[in-house]
């Protein structure tokens, strides 16, 4: 039950985009059409669902203070926390590459639709952000997996919703200087207000 609560919380209440502003760059850049937004969203769910648990393992058994105890008592005092950034980003980049190769091999059609988005994901802050939050909040492995996956779903929903609004927006008259990024900022703000209504829900 706790896991379900965590899942719902990370999709709606603590949405990656609206509560933490993570992944904004790709959120703004790739939300002009629903179909491309769908591809990117799917890729994010995929990569987040894989990298967060893997980074959890890495953090638990290598990086955390005293994590190396399993190697022997001499290693108990070692604290490699400062290596967190570089290791997490390396895992993410490697996983993205691996996922890309796997998809290319087994599902060329999915690869065709995700294609260019996969490499972009390595530098999407939602991915690194989730791993860092996971490390900071001391989740268990099950919690980390649920958190990673549902954060991805949250991003997926947000980017599809924004893309749908922007498609409609093409037929409205926006003042010239506000076109593009400006109006998108306001829309995102208003969507954020809508998502704030979930905040009171206690799970």
């Amino acid at each position: 039950m706790d896991l379900l609560n965590l899942g719902i919380k990370s999709i709606f209440i603590e949405n990656m985009v609206f509560a933490y502003f993570l992944g904004m760059c790709s959120f703004l850049a790739v939300s002009k059409k629903v179909s491309t937004a769908f591809g990117l969203g799917l890729a994010v769910v995929f990569v987040l669902g894989i990298t967060v648990p893997i980074n959890w393992l890495l953090n638990e058994y290598v990086l955390k203070a005293g994590a190396l105890t399993w190697l022997g008592a001499d290693f108990a005092s070692i604290d490699l926390t400062f290596l967190r950034f570089i290791m997490f980003i390396a895992i993410i980049a490697a996983m993205v590459q691996l996922v890309e190769m796997t998809i290319e091999k087994f599902s060329p059609s999915l690869y065709g639709s995700l294609g260019i988005f996969l490499p972009l994901i390595a530098v999407n802050c939602a991915i690194l952000g989730s791993s860092l939050f996971m490390a900071q909040r001391d989740y268990t492995l099950a919690e980390a997996s649920v958190f990673g996956f549902s954060s991805g779903i949250g991003f997926f929903l947000a980017i599809i919703a924004l893309a749908a609004i922007r498609e409609k927006l093409r037929y409205s008259q926006v003042p010239d200087p506000l076109k593009g990024l400006g109006i998108t900022m306001f829309i995102t703000g208003l969507m954020g207000i809508a998502f704030m209504s979930f905040m009171g829900i206690s799970l």
Partner: peptide, 11 residues
């Protein structure tokens, strides 16, 4: 103070 304010101000 909430995230929403940031979007609006930047807009």
């Amino acid at each position: 103070v909430s995230p929403v304010g940031a979007f609006i101000v930047l807009g």
